[in-house]
Amino acid sequence: MSQGITIGQYMPGNTIVHRMDPRSKLISLLVFIGGIFTVPGFPGLMVFLVLVLLLLFFSRVSYRQVLRGLRPIMVIVFLTLVLHVFFTKGGVVLWRMGQFTIEYDGVHLGVFTALRLITLVFYTMLVTLTTTPLDLTGALEYLLKPLKYLRIPVSEMAVIVMIALRFIPTLMEESSRIVKAQMARGADLGGGNLFRKARALVPVMVPLFVSAFRRAEELATAMEARCYRPGIRRTSLRQSRATLTDYLIVAASCLLVVGAVFIT
């Protein structure tokens, strides 16, 4: 049942990274993303890469999970690498075949961009693997609060995102149950050409939608029964509190990013 885990799913733990305030985690993440994109050369990028590997190690997330998260982006990484290697020109010619050359700048830039992307994914994985989706949306809501003055319904959007996240595992479980039930009735899922595959999905998709709508209806009733009204000031059960450590970490990440950008 390893398919029960989605990429980047929160893995419970009790390390410094897990305990950090989600808001400072998110800010640091944004700072690092900015840093990764502005850093012009290898030495600075290496600082970021080594740091994130250390953090991943200390937060004790399973390396298998991290590698799984890397898989979907590998295509893009590979593509940028190949494109740069073959089409970016400049520097020493490393290999020549007729008109066709591979030059130093191409290889350099290809490897650099690929590493940049991988580092980026590592940082996001570090945050999503150590923070519950609930905390993450809470933090996002907090950080987007200023947008309220532009009459953007931030809290409502956060509730929508939270509900969506909350129901991903539920719907996955539901779909696996429906798949099993139809298999028990001799359904052949997968196999055959595209048309047959699509047809075979009907007995799974219809009940899944029916149940999703039923759940939505039940949830709406339950929320109304508890007096939920959109656009009202609401306190939350779990107040995240930023400690001194959190401020220090944010400050340190800022310094680090500035430093890393300057050394290269």
Binding site: I178, K180, A181, Q182, A184, R185, G186, V206, P207
Partner: peptide
């Protein structure tokens, strides 16, 4: 699976067909 028939909990949550006939015929058609 056709020899050992399985009725899940809340089996009506797996209904998908437009008619009772189609729903019942799903197994034997398969």
């Amino acid at each position: 699976r056709t020899r050992v028939g399985m009725v899940f909990q809340y089996p009506e949550h797996q209904f998908f067909a437009e008619t009772v006939y189609q729903e019942t015929a799903f197994g034997p058609s398969n």
